[in-house]
Design a protein around this nucleic acid. Structure first.
Length: 419
DNA sequence: TCTGGGGTCCTAGGACCC
DNA sequence: TCTGGGGTCCTAGGACCC
């Protein structure tokens, strides 16, 4: 048995924990740069705001309905997520933290008859201890647990907890569940399934021609079909894996045409990516940068990108920044209004298994001690306490975040600035 | 005026090996 | 005119997720 616990309107729920004025009215949380709506309260859904809409399109509607808007506050969400997951860990021997607001619980060996009561208890305890409402679906496979979770959220009878263990009841629910809502079925696969006259999850589960599914949807689609049949194909991964790529990118608060500003933004992205790299104890073989204009604007468009592979994999911010800035010189073009840039690190290796260049072994760890010191100072005194000068101080490119809540659960930034 | 950011996995095809 | 057979590894691009 596998349970999927999913926090309801997670970002909105986090804001509501600390802000009483955000309760009982439409509330939305915006993506970075105050761009799109990425989390909605039930009241906000009810007045007809779709997920993912650009904020400027619904700003008026929200105001008219006495709604409240927040810029995203990822430090707060990350912290509350941690609290939810810690509580969940007490209820299952194995847990996979699937995203900031979701976790799979392995409830192997539990008795069927007790399952429903057990997940009801989990839901109640999480709410009591963290203030975050969750929904829980339980079934034999991940795909079915996910499906049960969605149904439990939407239906008024289940009130946020649903077990799909009985074959007959499961089939009944599957036959009302559109294939497009199944976990792993996106736009393209939905079209292909409809071409085969498969419209709901029950059609898919009982579709006889397995070879055709494999051909049209690759082994990914086949695995989803098997999971619907109760055959587990997608393992629960309770051990946290190292990332294989690390990306840091952001759109600017306003358009940028000045090379120096772009360089500062790139240096800052490299710094943040390299911090993540060292935190997960990896080294990077390659670095990739890109700068681009706004595709929604009718000004001249350009996209510049460049990659570089190091002889020896590195985790030094200095080396990475230096290379990245050279690459900006190569891709930057005068006369364009840039709106976004970013950096990604790839070819990641375990830091103690990295293969070094035969001729540069002397400088392997030269920067490492310095990097470690900077990391620990930044951890203690707040990020950016120490940074490379190339990151600049003016931050003309910084993203908009005009409606951000306070740092309720973490060190207060203002104090750090005084220090 | 204003349209997010960060990931994973799979497959096909090219480059290369003996 | 005619030019083998069997592999591996890497990368780009597609599709999907939250």
């Amino acid at each position: 048995m596998i349970a999927l616990v999913d926090c309801n309107s997670f970002y909105v729920s986090c804001e509501r924990v600390f802000d009483l004025s955000a309760r009982n009215r439409p509330v939305v949380v915006l993506s970075n740069n105050d761009g799109c709506v990425v989390s909605l309260s039930k009241e906000a859904k009810d007045i007809g705001i779709p997920m993912g809409t650009p904020y400027f399109k619904v700003k008026k509607l929200i105001k008219e309905n006495n709604g409240k808007v927040f810029s995203s506050n990822y430090t707060l969400y990350g912290d509350l997520s941690y609290r939810v997951m810690e509580t969940l860990k007490r209820f299952a021997p194995k847990i996979e933290i699937y995203s900031i607001d979701e976790a799979f619980l392995n409830l192997e060996g539990f008795r069927k008859e007790e399952a429903l009561n057990y997940i009801k208890e989990i839901k109640a305890v999480v709410y009591k201890e963290t203030g975050i409402p969750v929904s829980i679906g339980l079934a034999k496979t991940k795909v079915l647990a996910k499906l049960a979770n969605i149904v439990s959220k939407k239906s008024t009878t289940h009130k946020g907890t649903l077990c799909l263990l009985d074959e007959k009841e499961t089939n009944k629910i599957l036959s009302t569940f559109p294939v497009s809502d199944i976990w792993g079925i996106g736009r393209k696969m939905n079209v292909r399934l409809h071409e085969l006259k498969i419209r709901n999850a029950y059609d898919f589960k009982t579709f006889k021609n397995d070879k055709l599914i494999l051909k049209k949807m690759t082994k990914v689609g086949k695995a989803i079909q098997d999971e619907l049949r109760g055959v587990s194909c997608i393992e629960l991964e309770d051990i946290k894996k190292r990332k294989k790529n690390i990306l840091s990118s952001r759109s600017f608060g306003k358009k940028i045409s000045n090379k120096q500003d772009i360089k500062e933004a790139i240096a800052s992205h490299v710094t943040s990516a390299a911090e993540k790299l060292r935190k997960q104890k990896s080294t990077a073989q390659s670095i990739h940068i890109f700068i681009k204009t706004n595709k929604f604007s009718d000004t001249m468009q350009t996209y510049g990108a460049k990659s570089f592979s190091f002889l020896s994999p590195t985790q030094s911010t200095f080396k990475l920044v230096s290379k990245a800035l050279d690459m900006v010189d190569e891709v930057f073009r005068e006369g364009f209004l840039y709106y976004k840039c970013g950096v990604s690190l790839s070819g990641l290796h375990n830091e103690d298994e990295s293969q070094h260049d035969l001729f540069s072994f002397n400088d392997i760890d030269k920067d490492l001690e310095i990097m470690r010191s900077i990391d620990s100072l930044n951890k203690y005194y707040g990020s950016e306490c120490i940074k490379v000068a190339a990151c600049g101080t003016k931050k003309h490119w910084q993203m908009l975040s005009q409606m951000k809540s306070k740092a309720f659960t973490t060190r207060v930034t203002e104090l750090l600035e005084v220090y």
